[in-house]
Simulated assay, not measured.
Amino acid sequence: MPDFYKRLISTLTGLLLIADSMWLLAHDKIHLGILLPMLIGIILILYTLFFPYIQQWQQKSKFCNNLYKMMWAGFWAWLASVIIFFGFIASNINNENNQRTTKAILVLGSGIENDQPSPTLQKRLDAAAEYAQHHPDALIIMTGGLGFQEKFTEAEVMWNYIKTNYPEIYNPIALEAQSTSTELNLRNSKTILKQHQIQLSDPITIVTSDFHSIRARAIAQHQGYSNVINISAETPLYIRYNAWLREYFAFLSGWLLNEY
């Protein structure tokens, strides 16, 4: 590929990644799936600006040339692994049969904004509400503790959203308001399930976002949930692929920490 097109593609890609990250940061979204694209975008812009000097360094010696090629090969290999992971998520998005009996519906938290569910969490709650209408006797457990500088726990905000927007739902609702991670969501919910005479071998539904379903199921099964039903909520488009990228690293982290 001619150098002009390399620099043009690098510039446009870098600007797009930076603009995406800046827009999300301006809306108080911040996590690795947002910061990493910004970092990559900055590196691509710097690559374009210093392209002549990089070429001179590359041609300085065989070692520099090989190192340059290895760095690009490593980047493309990593990018390929991300694309494969995205495909893995997309192929595993499913909502299992609504008619299948369930004893409990665990709704996993996903942040609140101005004492309201975040758009991602709203999607989860809407999916849970729709599902609960098919299972009016199932226990609903709202999970999520108190965030930094928040007045209400996620579980409380989730409960209020359901009561306000879905008054037709009469399922018993319990709040697990101590957890700050998926692992704790599921671990702390065990106590509530036991209080309601629900066994981990009973059919238990986990409602979470599409990108999160695979890892949530794996963590649940690792903790002894042996009859898990997955309900996947769509991730809002404006943050979908940033969330999927964050999940890429969360999935690796969970594996390293033996969460599943």
Rank of each mutant, 00 (worst) to 15 (best):
M1P: 14
P2D: 09
R7I: 14
L8S: 01
L8A: 07
S10E: 09
A19D: 03
M22F: 13
W23Y: 14
L24F: 02
L25Q: 10
D28L: 14
K29C: 04
K29V: 05
H31P: 00
I34H: 00
L36H: 06
M38L: 14
I40K: 01
I42H: 05
I42C: 11
I43W: 06
L46V: 10
T48Q: 06
T48N: 04
T48A: 07
I54W: 02
I54H: 03
Q58A: 11
Q58S: 07
S61E: 07
L67I: 15
Y68S: 13
K69I: 05
G74L: 14
F75T: 04
W76I: 09
A77G: 10
L79E: 01
S81I: 11
F85Q: 03
F85S: 03
F86S: 09
G87P: 02
A90M: 07
N98I: 14
Q99M: 12
T101D: 13
T102F: 02
K103F: 00
I105M: 01
I105A: 01
G109Y: 04
S110F: 10
I112N: 15
Q116I: 07
P117H: 12
P119V: 04
P119S: 09
T120A: 14
Q122S: 08
Q122N: 06
K123T: 06
Y131I: 04
Y131G: 01
A132I: 00
Q133P: 01
H135G: 10
H135K: 15
D137S: 14
D137Q: 15
D137V: 09
D137R: 12
A138R: 01
T143A: 12
G144F: 02
L146D: 04
K151S: 08
F152I: 09
T153Q: 05
W159S: 09
K163L: 07
K163A: 09
N165C: 07
N165D: 05
Y166S: 12
N171M: 08
P172D: 12
E176H: 03
A177K: 13
T180N: 15
S181L: 08
E183A: 14
L184H: 15
L186P: 02
L186A: 13
L186T: 14
N188W: 12
K190C: 03
T191R: 10
L193C: 03
K194Q: 14
Q195C: 03
H196A: 03
L200R: 00
L200E: 00
P203Y: 07
P203T: 03
I204V: 15
I206F: 06
V207G: 04
S209D: 11
H212S: 02
A216C: 11
A218T: 08
A220V: 01
A220R: 02
H222R: 14
G224V: 06
G224H: 05
S226A: 11
S226K: 08
N230P: 00
N230G: 07
A233D: 11
E234A: 14
E234L: 11
T235R: 06
T235N: 04
P236N: 11
L237M: 07
Y238M: 08
I239R: 02
A250Q: 12
F251H: 05
L252H: 08
L252T: 06
G254V: 06
Y260I: 13
